[in-house]
């Protein structure tokens, strides 16, 4: 049996999520028909089964999951829904997979605006369409006021790994180039400066984007790339440290080559935060053999998400497990893992 999608009529103002929306009864159905299905419907979801039945292409399968809890839920450049789709798509793509299917689970706080929820669902639908993935199954729970912060979203994703591609954090070799796809810190500073209480009237925009399109083009051109990561939480510093640690090699980067947008830099200076420690949601770190680096850069720069791609450093034999930055003054310092949450500081 299929249910024809209901007309996406605008929801009434002031309408909010009720406990009954998650109780499986009539209100749950209303929520499905009025908020979720109009935007997400497809041949899998339309069946309203408890599971999606998938046919996967031959080859190895990649499978990943991530849970999104961002506050504020709406931020300049995106919202939690877009983030939940793009983040999981990127987690598949950096493993060399072609992302195919996503699942999504919502935890909604009682009292959360249904208009806001619908906006988030619409963003998920368009993000999925842009990334070429299908949301095939989902679930919604409602918790009492104060038991979660507005809305949490989990997405899991499945993709098929490309033939002949072997990306791993353990693959780094001396002499490899480290390539960064663009400016650092945009997402984290967009979130931080849009939080209440920090006196910002800023318009720093999140870089939230699906990277599978660009990654596909890069891997078509250069399948022998050694490693790829999306530098989300902990920023580029955390990603580079993980790569150096996993491969037991050193990484050396140049301070002058790290691209930072002017307003992001301004906000980082003001709050005393290192842009290398700030989260990104649409950036890519690649480790490539030096002789392929020009080709990779050219492919990336031709893509909208890689226009500012640049070589930021290289893999070295010295100081295994450590990332070292060469400063503009010729001195060197350790680029360490950030310690937990980035806090604005006055000193």
């Amino acid at each position: 049996m299929t249910i024809a999608p209901a007309c996406p009529l605008p929801l009434m103002q002031h309408e909010t999520v009720q406990m009954a929306h998650g109780a499986g009864g009539r209100l749950s159905q209303t929520l499905m028909q009025r908020v979720f299905m109009p935007h997400l419907h497809n041949s899998f979801l339309d069946l309203l089964d408890d599971q999606a039945k998938l046919e996967l292409p031959a080859g190895r399968t990649a499978f990943t999951t991530d849970t999104y809890v961002v506050s504020p839920v709406f931020f300049p450049g995106g919202n939690i829904g877009e983030l939940a789709v793009n983040g999981t798509v990127n987690d598949l793509a950096v493993g060399g997979a072609i992302p195919l299917y996503l699942s999504t689970g919502f935890v909604l706080e009682e009292g959360f605006s249904l208009v806001a929820l619908e906006t988030i669902v619409m963003s998920m639908a368009s993000a999925a369409q842009n990334a070429g993935v299908i949301i095939v199954t989902g679930d919604t729970k409602v918790v009492g006021k104060g038991q979660c912060d507005s809305i949490f979203i989990n997405t899991s994703g499945i993709g098929t790994i490309r033939e002949g591609v072997n990306l791993s954090c353990c693959n780094l070799k001396k002499g490899d180039c480290i390539i960064l796809s663009g400016t650092v810190g945009d997402h984290g500073m967009a979130i931080m400066t849009s939080r209440e209480g920090l006196s910002f009237q800023s318009h720093i925009t999140s870089d939230c984007a699906a990277l599978n399109g660009m990654i596909g083009k890069v891997l078509d051109a250069v399948p022998m790339i050694h490693a790829m990561r999306d530098p989300t939480r902990g920023g580029v510093a955390a990603t580079l440290n993980e790569l150096a640690h996993s491969s037991s090699v050193g990484i050396e980067i140049n301070e002058t080559s790290i691209p930072v947008k002017p307003d992001v830099r301004g906000a980082c200076e003001l709050l005393g935060i290192d842009p290398l420690h700030v989260a990104n949601e649409g950036k890519l770190v690649l480790v490539v053999p030096a002789d392929c680096s020009e080709t990779v850069l050219n492919v990336m720069r031709a893509h909208e998400h890689g226009r500012d791609a640049v070589i930021i450093g290289s893999v070295v034999n010295d100081h295994p497990g450590m990332v070292v930055m060469r400063t503009v003054f010729g001195s060197r310092r350790i680029v360490d893992l950030p310690l937990g949450e980035q806090l604005p500081r006055i000193c």
Binding site: G272, D318, H319, M322, V324, I334, D336, C347
Partner: peptide, 18 residues
């Protein structure tokens, strides 16, 4: 982050190996 010990730890640890 201003503390001398933290500054040494973050940027300087194993400085001899640099």
């Amino acid at each position: 982050s201003e503390g001398a010990c933290a500054a040494y730890y973050n940027y300087h640890r194993n400085a001899y190996s640099l």
